[in-house]
């Protein structure tokens, strides 16, 4: 790698060398092996693997549950961020700290806890069972697990934007006689939409690949509650590496596209913020 601008600070060779070496061993070579492995296969084989009914339906289940969960998170995340920034109430700091729990709690633990809670014999599941609604072992269960996993992404994306929002604009609008709901929809809402979208995208990306919390609650019925990571896992257990790798590659492309879109929104967002300042 060539330095374009010489700096007086030492350590370029050493730190860049270490960075590239570790990056290659841990990330680049393993990821490349995925591509190399699929390169052996013909396009027909790849298409045949992907278009199997069971695989297609797992993609549908994954996308639908991840989308619905991220949508719920986008709404609840904005509400939570709003409440945490704008209001003061008892135990607020505790709730603020709790938001981070899905990052700290191992996904398998969350998985078994949510499964026990939402099963027909559980506290929440028992309540819903009275109305004939099943949560655990259905797509609703998967969505519940994904809401748990995704909530901090939206809250932590929206919170800083609300904190930085200058109250002068809201006050000015209030002085000029705008109603509170009008102030919210005309002034605050447009500001938090890009942040909420970023959070939505991050949560969606994470939910698409989530395995630990979902594997217990899903029940793993083919065509119904089988998500893509589960199908990759079951192909691996049957030593069908070719299928597993092909499905993984498609999945990888899907998450990269998500990441790309999130970055696009983020760059536009910062440009607007900088331009407005």
């Amino acid at each position: 790698m060539k330095r374009t601008n010489r700096s007086v600070i030492p350590g370029f060779g050493l730190t860049t060398g270490i960075t590239l070496a570790i990056l290659s061993i841990v990330v680049l070579i393993p990821l490349a092996s995925l591509v190399v492995f699929t390169a052996h296969m013909s396009l027909d084989e790849i298409v045949a693997t992907i278009t199997r009914d069971r695989v297609l339906s797992s993609f549908r289940v994954s996308f639908v549950t991840a989308f619905v969960a991220s949508l719920i998170n986008a709404v609840m995340g904005v509400v939570l961020a709003w409440v945490l920034v704008k209001y003061s109430f008892p135990l607020k700091r505790l709730i603020d700290g709790m938001i981070e729990l899905p990052f700290a709690l191992p996904t398998a633990v969350a998985g078994i806890a949510l499964t026990t809670l939402t099963a027909d014999t559980g506290l929440v599941g028992g309540f819903f069972a009275k109305f004939g609604v099943k949560i655990a072992f259905t797509q609703a269960g998967i969505t519940v697990a994904l809401v748990f996993i995704g909530i901090p992404f939206v809250v932590r994306a929206v919170q800083p934007v609300l904190e930085k929002l200058d109250p002068a604009y809201e006050e000015a609008a209030g002085v000029l006689g705008a109603s509170r709901s009008r102030i919210f929809w005309k002034i605050v809402f447009p500001e938090i939409v890009p942040a909420a979208l970023t959070g939505f995208g991050l949560a969606f990306g994470r939910c698409l690949g989530e395995y630990g919390s979902v594997v217990f609650i899903a029940g793993n019925k083919p065509f119904e509650t089988e998500i893509v990571p589960l199908i990759i896992m079951s192909e691996l257990q049957e030593y069908d590496y070719a299928s597993a790798t092909t499905i993984a590659l498609v999945m990888l492309v899907a998450s990269f596209v998500t990441l790309f879109l999130v970055n696009l929104i983020q760059t536009r967002n910062t440009r607007i913020l900088k331009g407005g300042a």
């Binding site: 990821l31 092996s33 995925l34 690949g209 989530e210 395995y211 998450s255």
Partner: peptide, 21 residues
């Protein structure tokens, strides 16, 4: 971008690539 890549990869795929390597 390459450094940030791993967080977007599904954990299952993260395991798979080491299995393949």
């Amino acid at each position: 971008t390459l450094i940030d890549l791993p967080v977007t990869v599904s954990p299952i795929i993260a395991g798979l690539i080491f299995l393949l390597t």
